Amino acid sequence: MPQPCPEALACLETRRSASAKLFRDPVPDEAALHRILTAALRVPDHGKLEPWRLVLLQRADLAQLADLAEARARELGGDAEKIAKGRGQYDLGRLAVAVISSPKPSEKIPLAEQVLSAGALCMNILHAAHAAGWGAQWLSGWPSHDPLFCARAFGCSGAETVAGIIHIATPAAAEAPDRPRPALERVLTRGLAMPADAQS
């Protein structure tokens, strides 16, 4: 028989992304962050390849990333808007964790599965931070998709990419109303899509 965990299910039912623009101090201390990240590492990982790595970003690191993003925007001939968008999340950040998708050579585990595992790790960090009472938001932004920026900032090489940057801190005292969530009936189908005559 199933052994339900109603508290965990209730937590999942209330998870939402807090706005990182409105985050306040404090941020998780070393012990709190260790627990969040250790829990988050319990992620599907076919073949135990660990096809990801984490980079902890504190305020001084985020300030450096803002400067790197601006420098890269200028190299690309970006206008003031591109520079502002590149700096944005880093200038405002207090603490973040960059999840780097780091696929490993494997004849058995497809690249897509390894990349999805990194995405699942991002989601697990959000869940764990929420369960621990913190605000968390998964952000990316154009610098996260620029290979040269990622190489300079996070040492990305080969097939490595930034899966996401998860900001964690104290949420605003009054969050905006939760956004509408999709109705299950609208996105759920039952059975296969193949024609009836092909099922025999």
Rank of each mutant, 00 (worst) to 15 (best):
A66C: 11
A66M: 12
A66F: 06
A66R: 08
A66S: 13
D67Y: 03
D67A: 15
D67S: 14
D67M: 10
D67L: 08
D67E: 15
L68M: 14
L68A: 13
L68T: 10
A69W: 05
A69N: 06
A69Y: 06
A69G: 12
A69R: 05
A69T: 14
E70Q: 15
E70V: 13
E70W: 12
A71D: 15
A71P: 09
A71K: 12
R72N: 09
R72L: 09
R72W: 10
A73F: 10
A73C: 14
A73S: 15
R74A: 13
R74W: 08
R74N: 13
E75W: 04
E75G: 13
E75A: 14
E75C: 14
E75I: 10
L76G: 11
L76I: 15
L76W: 13
L76H: 13
L76N: 09
G77R: 14
G77Y: 12
G77H: 13
G78C: 08
G78I: 11
G78W: 04
G78T: 14
G78M: 07
G78Q: 07
D79H: 07
A80T: 10
A80M: 07
A80R: 10
A80Y: 04
E81C: 05
E81V: 10
E81L: 08
E81M: 03
K82W: 07
I83F: 03
I83K: 04
I83N: 08
I83Y: 04
A84M: 03
K85W: 01
K85D: 01
K85Y: 02
K85L: 02
G86Q: 07
G86H: 03
G86F: 00
G86C: 04
G86A: 05
G86V: 13
G86R: 05
R87V: 06
R87N: 11
R87T: 14
R87D: 06
G88L: 12
G88S: 09
G88A: 07
G88M: 09
Q89I: 12
Q89L: 07
Q89A: 10
Q89N: 02
Y90C: 11
Y90S: 09
Y90K: 07
Y90M: 12
Y90V: 14
Y90L: 11
Y90D: 08
D91S: 09
D91M: 03
D91G: 08
D91L: 05
L92M: 12
L92Y: 04
L92H: 00
L92K: 09
L92D: 07
L92S: 05
G93L: 02
G93Q: 00
G93V: 01
G93E: 00
G93I: 01
G93S: 01
G93A: 02
R94M: 10
R94F: 11
R94H: 14
R94G: 05
L95G: 03
L95T: 03
A96N: 05
V97G: 07
V97W: 00
V97M: 05
V97R: 01
V97D: 05
A98S: 01
A98M: 02
A98Y: 00
A98E: 02
A98C: 00
A98H: 00
A98F: 03
V99A: 06
V99L: 00
V99H: 00
I100A: 00
I100T: 01
I100L: 03
I100S: 00
I100N: 02
S101Y: 01
S101Q: 04
S101F: 02
S101L: 02
S101E: 05
